[in-house]
Amino acid sequence: MKKTLLTLGLTAFMFGTVVTSCKPSTKEEENAQENLQDAKEEVQEAKEDLVEAKRAATAEEWQAFKDETNAAIAVNETRIAELKVKMKNTGKSIDALYEKNIDALEQKNKELKMRMDSYKNDTSADWESFKREFKYDMNELGKSLKDLTVNNKK
């Protein structure tokens, strides 16, 4: 009898444990599921914002940038032409290196102009990256033109 009672009690205890552990999801689990869904939605929105940031420039912004850079390229062409005239007008022989530097700067200016003309302002191009790199290259060319006329020999 003791054995039967002990077995029955142990069975009832195990049954109770199984029943209580198989209860439906708790409120904490439901909140976790909602938070997970919210996080997924926020990630999707962030992706959409990134795509929007990489979109093509507006027509006005593109035209203003193009006009600005074309004006800077024209200024650089004028400086290069002045350097060539100055080089020819001086009676003394100019270093071949000086002439080579002028030619290299002229070539770089032409490359920038071609790069600007060939850029397609569409959604597949990364406008911000192009603009940043192009401005950097224009600034470097301007510095090189200024540094070319500085006499570093003492």
Rank of each mutant, 00 (worst) to 15 (best):
T90P: 00
K153N: 09
Q33F: 10
E140L: 13
M116P: 01
S144K: 07
L5A: 09
A104V: 13
A59C: 02
D122F: 05
K108D: 14
M1F: 05
A12V: 15
E61P: 03
N76V: 12
V19L: 12
L83Q: 15
N89S: 09
L5Q: 13
F65W: 01
Q33W: 07
L10W: 07
F13D: 12
K153E: 15
T149G: 03
M14R: 02
A104T: 13
L97E: 12
A125S: 11
G9F: 08
F13K: 04
K110S: 12
E45G: 04
D95C: 05
K88Q: 15
T17C: 12
T4N: 04
W62T: 06
K120V: 14
D49I: 02
K113L: 11
K88V: 09
K40D: 12
E111V: 10
M87H: 11
E29G: 06
S25W: 04
F130Q: 00
W127R: 02
V19F: 05
L97K: 15
F130W: 01
L97R: 12
E140A: 14
K88P: 01
K47I: 11
A125H: 09
E133T: 11
A71H: 03
F65R: 00
F130R: 00
R55V: 05
W127C: 03
S124T: 14
K3A: 06
V51K: 12
L145G: 06
K143L: 13
K146N: 11
E99I: 11
L50A: 05
A72K: 07
A32K: 06
E140W: 01
I102T: 03
R79M: 14
K84Y: 12
K86N: 10
N70S: 00
L145M: 13
E28K: 07
A39R: 08
K110F: 08
E60A: 10
W127S: 01
W62F: 14
L6I: 14
L112H: 08
L148P: 01
A59Q: 13
F13I: 14
A64L: 09
D137T: 07
D137W: 02
K146G: 12
A72W: 02
G9R: 00
L105G: 09
W127M: 07
K110I: 14
Q33H: 08
Q33I: 12
R132P: 01
E61S: 03
F134E: 01
P24K: 04
M1C: 09
K146R: 11
K154E: 10
E133K: 03
E28P: 00
D67F: 00
N89L: 14
F134G: 04
A96N: 09
S118T: 13
I80T: 06
V75M: 11
L8M: 07
L105S: 05
W127N: 02
T78V: 13
L83F: 08
K92F: 13
A46T: 02
G16W: 00
E61I: 02
A64Q: 08
R115P: 04
D67L: 03
K40V: 15
W127P: 00
G91I: 15
V19A: 14
A57L: 01
D126S: 04
